[in-house]
Structure formats: structure tokens, C-alpha cells
Amino acid sequence: MKFQLRDYQQNASNAAISHYKLKNGRNYLMVLPTGAGKSLIIADIAARLNEPLLVFQPNKEILEQNFAKLQTYGIFDAGCYSASVKRKDINRITFATIGSVYNHMEDFKHFRYILIDECHLVNPTEGMYADFFAAAERRIIGLTATPYRLCSTMNGSMLKFLTRTRPRVFSDVIYYCQVSELLARGFLTKLKYYDLTRIELVNVRRNSTGADFDEASLSKEFERVDLYGYLISMVRRLLAPKSGIPRRGILVFTRFVKEAEMLTNEIPDSAVVSGTTPKKERERILSDFKSGKIKVVANCGVLTTGFDYPELDTIVLCRPTMSLALYYQMVGRVIRPYPGKEGWVVDLCGNIKTFGKVEDLRIEQPEKGKWMIKTNGKQLTNVIL
């Protein structure tokens, strides 16, 4: 079955094909909101480009999702090259992870066209991607919903738009669409925001980098307001909404594992997922969550990208962050469309006050080359945090 692309998806694919044909040696960026259907766009680009194409993904989950979409096009000259999926197939179209390719770069010299999903994770200064780019002449296009990365400056930390870092991988934006546009057209789920913040962020110090909150200071503030007890009572309320209509899963983001464990000790049919959760156990928990057997998943440090569960309609933010990318990715888990769904964002830690609603985030270029992210007139990138 070949999917019918929406107009903005087709426009994004057209932009990539056109710019791959240019011979100016520049790399480009496409910005597409979470839930916009990047995997379909990648599949269409791969299907139309009559050249070897190497598609990088940051992890197994996203690689498998993107490759599955490509297969729906009936394209058979494609393979996966990644130890995480236990496959090492090189074909005209090859979906890969950089770690696996890095150890065998000689085998990939013939790939001149490169597509990178979640390209904000690429370090422009050093690392495996930088070495791979330097090994041969490439034409690179990156896709992301969060086109910025945290950088240190003489005056403090700054979120820099990817085209404005020095050094940089991407020279310019060739396509973007706004979250607000997709929401207005019904392509994303409309969200209700509940700012139920109890902590006082003025009481919390920044860490040594100045780019996030100090853990000890944050923990002390959590204890001052009994955030753990507050979280438990809030989740109980969400499990029994006044409407009487049960939510389709509650995903809780915590800063510390102990918060997640305290919650699940008190809430039946709940589970914890963290960076130390064994792979098979994590897969079992998420499968039970999607089937409804598990009602609440409390997660610490995971499930911000690559977790595809469109039915999910409730997230609880029980952690403050200074990272716009992290905030966007957390809210992104609940914005994917599903029939009859109303998404709820329940914030206990001041994130909505800091960043606003995700539909108010806008990519703008007030001057040539000066790309930035703003919310309600407030500039969020390329300013000192």
C-alpha cells in the first residue's frame, strides 16, 4: 500500500529532492513538528531518489518505524545496517545507526546522499558523525522537530539554532511547517494545558553548566512542597476524571527514579521505566501500557523520542527543565492524532510558564540566515539562558 502524502509532506519531499540536485556543497535542514509524519516523508524521498541513499536514525525504535514505512511503498532495494536490529544489509537505500556504520566506513564511501533523522543530535565539532562527514564528499539533509542545541558561551549557556552554531553542519532551512498550522488543520491533537505547579523555581539553583537545575537543590525543593505526595494524589484524580470517561494511559515524566518508584508503589496497575530497565522488561511494560493492562507508566530519562503511541492522551510533567527540546519532546508524546482524543498536559513544575504552549512555538527568520524559535513574541533561541 502506498500512502497518499499530505500537501506539506509532499512539499517537504520535493524540497529535499530539489536540494539534493544542487552542487553547491551545502547541507540543509528541514523542520517538521512531532506527529507530522517524518517517516512517510523519508520513505517518499528514498523512493524518488534514483541514487544510493543512507538514512541515519538515532536508535533502534526510530529505525524500525522508518524502515517499515518504506516497505509500504513496495520498495525492495532497501536494507538495514545496525547491530541493534541484528542486521547488516547494505542496499541502494540503507537505514542505519552511526555507531554501526562508523566501524566500517570504507563500505559506505559510495553513499553521497545522506538523510539524518533527529539531526539535532549531531555534534558538529567532533564524534562519529563529524568523522563520517569528513571521510568523503556528502550531500546531507537533516530532519528534526527541535532545530537547536545547547552551547556554552563566554556569557553563559545558549540554545543555538542549528544553522547558527559555529562550527555547523547545516547551512540553511529549506522547509518547515509550524505546529499551529498542523493543529488548525486537524493533523495534530488539540491539547488542554493544566498548570498545577507547586514548586518555586526561584528556590532552585542552576548546575555548574548553567543549563539545567542543580539536582541537590531541586531535590530539596521537591521535599519542601512534598511533590511526591502531590504527584500521587494528582495521578489518582486523573485515573478517576469527573467526566467518568477513563484516560487512554497516563505517562508521567519524573526527574529522579525514586519519584517514579514511590508513585508506582501507591498506584495499582502502574510501572516504572528508566535507563536501567532491561530491554525485554521495558518492551513488556510498554506493550501492556498500550493494551491498557498497565494504566500508568512513570519514566525517568526515557520515552521522549521513539515512543510511538498515538492513543496516549495524558502526560504529567513532574520535573522542571531548562531544555526547550526536552519540554517539546515530552509534550510531543501526547500531540499525535487519534480519533476522539483530547490531549491533556498536566504540569506540576513550571514548564508551561517557562516555555508556553507548544502550538505557540514558531520558527521565524526576521533577517536572512537569522533563524530562531519564538513563543508569543519571546525569543527562545540564540539568547543567554
Rank of each mutant, 00 (worst) to 15 (best):
M1K: 11
K2T: 11
L5M: 06
H19S: 04
L22K: 15
K23P: 00
Y28W: 14
S39E: 04
A43E: 02
L53R: 06
L54W: 13
P58A: 00
N66F: 01
N66S: 13
A68N: 14
K69R: 15
Q71D: 03
T72Q: 14
D77V: 06
A83E: 08
V85F: 11
R87T: 07
I90H: 12
I90W: 12
T94P: 08
T97E: 07
G99S: 12
G99I: 00
V101H: 03
Y102G: 01
M105R: 12
M105V: 10
K109I: 02
Y113S: 10
L115A: 01
I116F: 07
E118A: 06
V122S: 01
G127W: 13
F133A: 03
F133H: 02
F133L: 15
E137C: 04
T144R: 08
A145T: 00
Y148H: 15
L150G: 09
N155R: 14
N155A: 04
S157L: 05
M158T: 13
K160W: 00
L162P: 02
R164N: 15
P167N: 02
R168C: 07
Q178L: 05
L183W: 09
G186Q: 10
D195G: 01
S217Q: 04
E223W: 04
V225D: 02
L227P: 10
L231G: 08
L238A: 11
R247L: 09
T254K: 07
T254W: 06
I267V: 14
D269Q: 08
S274F: 11
K280V: 13
F289I: 06
K290A: 14
S291H: 05
K293Y: 13
K293S: 10
K295W: 04
V297G: 07
G306R: 11
C318Q: 05
R319F: 03
M322Y: 12
S323H: 10
L324H: 02
Q329C: 05
E342M: 11
E342S: 09
W344H: 13
G350N: 15
K357E: 15
R362K: 15
E364Y: 00
Q365Y: 06
E367K: 13
G369T: 12
Q379P: 00
